[in-house]
């Protein structure tokens, strides 16, 4: 789905820089609904992974301390323009999101 993530990957010299924003509420489970006063259930990304042409390059375990609509940037060597970077996330409810970018 196009709305899950914004991702771009740019090559400069030998280093590729990836910048991504994942659209996710990152609810901690300790916030209260202002109208009902009830706790909003935890809903947060737990695992992320980034792949270059299908090979994993960076992965992550996240908790509720990562901000809403998480921003994530990282760098790696060994890629060329036209290669594909893919980010996949999985949240605590088992939902997943994917974003792909061709390195420019």
């Amino acid at each position: 789905m196009a709305d899950e993530m914004k991702i771009r990957a740019k090559l400069s010299g030998s280093t590729t820089t990836v910048k991504a924003i994942m659209y996710h509420p990152m609810e901690s489970g300790s916030r209260k609904d202002k109208e009902t006063g009830e706790l909003i259930p935890a809903h947060f990304i737990k695992e992320v992974k980034a792949e270059l042409n299908g090979e994993i390059i960076i992965s992550g375990d996240w908790g509720t301390g990562v901000s809403k609509n998480p921003y994530w940037s990282f760098e790696f060597d060994g890629a060329k323009a036209g290669d594909t970077v893919k980010i996949t996330w999985t949240d605590n409810l088992g939902e997943t999101g994917v974003g792909e970018a061709v390195i420019k």
Binding site: I57, I58, G60, G63, V66, Y71, W72, F74
Partner: peptide, 23 residues
């Protein structure tokens, strides 16, 4: 309230660098 925030693992030719936003 939950001090641990995140952990990133580096494989292949990734650089030991991370940029993120936290609460």
């Amino acid at each position: 309230p939950r001090p641990w925030i995140s952990r990133f693992y580096f494989h292949g030719k990734s650089k030991p660098f991370v940029s993120t936003r936290i609460k």
